[in-house]
C-alpha cells in the first residue's frame, strides 16, 4: 500500500500531464477553446434562471437559480466521476496494454481533471454568488476548501472501485448511468430537502453523502453561513476509509487488466 502510494507519487508528472492533456485537449480543436470551460456553466445558469423564473414560477425558494446552480456544479463533478470515471481505465486501454505505470494513475488523473474543471466553474459560482448579494462570510469561505477536499476524496474512492470493476464487467458503465440519474434525484439539487422531511425514508435520505456535500456548498455560497462541520468531519473519515478500500480493490484487480482488455 505504502509502496503503491510512493510509486504514484513518483509518477505525479504523468498525472499532471494526463490532467493537462484532458483539460487542454478537450476544447483544443474548437474555436472558443478553453473558454468553453466557463461558457458551459454560464449557459446552464442562464437556462436554469429562465426556467425557474418563467416556467416553474411557483418555486418557494428565493433566488432559486443560484440555489440550484451552487449545488449543480459540485454534482456535475461527482456525476462525471460516476459515469466517465467508471470507464476511465477502459478508455485508456491502449496505454494500459502497452506500457507499465502504476495503474492507479488513470482514475486519479480522471478525478483530478474533473475536479480542476469544477474548480474553474466554482470561480463563476462564487462571482454569481457575490453579485447576487449573498453575504460574504469569511469563516464560511474558509470552509470551502474542506468541503471540496471531502468531495474529492469521496469521489476518488468511488471511482477507484468502479473503474477497476468496469474492466471486468462493462455493464457497470450503463448501470451507473442510471444510478447517476437516480442519485441526482435523491440529492437536494433541484429542490429543497424540506420537501422530503415528512417521509419515513428521511433518515435514510440524510445518509446520502452527496446530500451532506451539496448542503455544505449551499450553506457557504447560497446562505453565506458556516456548514455543519461535524457532519463533514464524519464524512471525511468515511471517505478516507472508502478511498483505502478503493486502493485495495484496485490493487487486487489491476494485475489482470491487460489480459481482459
Amino acid at each position: 500500500m505504502i509502496e503503491t502510494l510512493k510509486e504514484i507519487w513518483a509518477y505525479r508528472s504523468m498525472i499532471r500531464s494526463l490532467v493537462h492533456k484532458d483539460l487542454r485537449g478537450r476544447y483544443q480543436a474548437s474555436v472558443l477553446g478553453f473558454l468553453w470551460t466557463f461558457i458551459v456553466p454560464l449557459c446552464q445558469l442562464a437556462v436554469y434562471s429562465l426556467m425557474f423564473s418563467i416556467i416553474m414560477r411557483g418555486a418557494a425558494v428565493e433566488k432559486f437559480y443560484l440555489y440550484v446552480f451552487v449545488a449543480l456544479i459540485p454534482w456535475n463533478f461527482f456525476s462525471a466521476c460516476l459515469t466517465g470515471g467508471a470507464s476511465s481505465v477502459v478508455a485508456q486501454q491502449s496505454l494500459v496494454n502497452k506500457i507499465y505505470f502504476p495503474r492507479e494513475v488513470v482514475p486519479v488523473a480522471y478525478v483530478t481533471s474533473s475536479f480542476v474543471n469544477m474548480l474553474l466553474c466554482e470561480i463563476i459560482v462564487i462571482l454569481v454568488s457575490v453579485f447576487s448579494g449573498v453575504p460574504f462570510n469569511v469563516l464560511a469561505y474558509l470552509c470551502l476548501p474542506l468541503v471540496m477536499l471531502v468531495e474529492y476524496i469521496f469521489a476518488l474512492g468511488v471511482t477507484m472501485i468502479i473503474s477497476a470493476i468496469d474492466v471486468y464487467f462493462r455493464d457497470l458503465e450503463h448501470i451507473l448511468g442510471v444510478v447517476a440519474m437516480a442519485w441526482m434525484f435523491v440529492t437536494p439539487i433541484m429542490y429543497d430537502s424540506s420537501i422530503v422531511a415528512g417521509s419515513r425514508w428521511y433518515s435514510l435520505y440524510q445518509l446520502n453523502p452527496m446530500n451532506i456535500i451539496v448542503t455544505a456548498y449551499r450553506d457557504i455560497l447560497y446562505a453565506g453561513k458556516v456548514p455543519e462541520l461535524t457532519k463533514l468531519a464524519v464524512l471525511l473519515g468515511i471517505s478516507i476509509v472508502l478511498l483505502w478500500i478503493g486502493f485495495l480493490v484496485f490493487g487486487r484487480l489491476k494485475r489482470r487488466f491487460s489480459e481482459v482488455m
Binding site: 513518483a10 500531464s17 494526463l18 483544443q28
Partner: peptide
C-alpha cells in the same frame, strides 16, 4: 513497446513530449 503512447493529436509536439515522457515516469 508502444511508441507514441498517449499522444494527443491536437496538442503540439512539445506538449506531447511532456505527456509521453511522463508516462515513462520522468519528472
Amino acid at each position: 513497446i508502444e511508441l507514441g503512447a498517449g499522444f494527443h493529436p491536437d496538442l503540439s509536439g512539445r506538449e506531447n513530449i511532456y505527456t509521453n515522457a511522463s508516462i515513462f515516469g520522468l519528472s
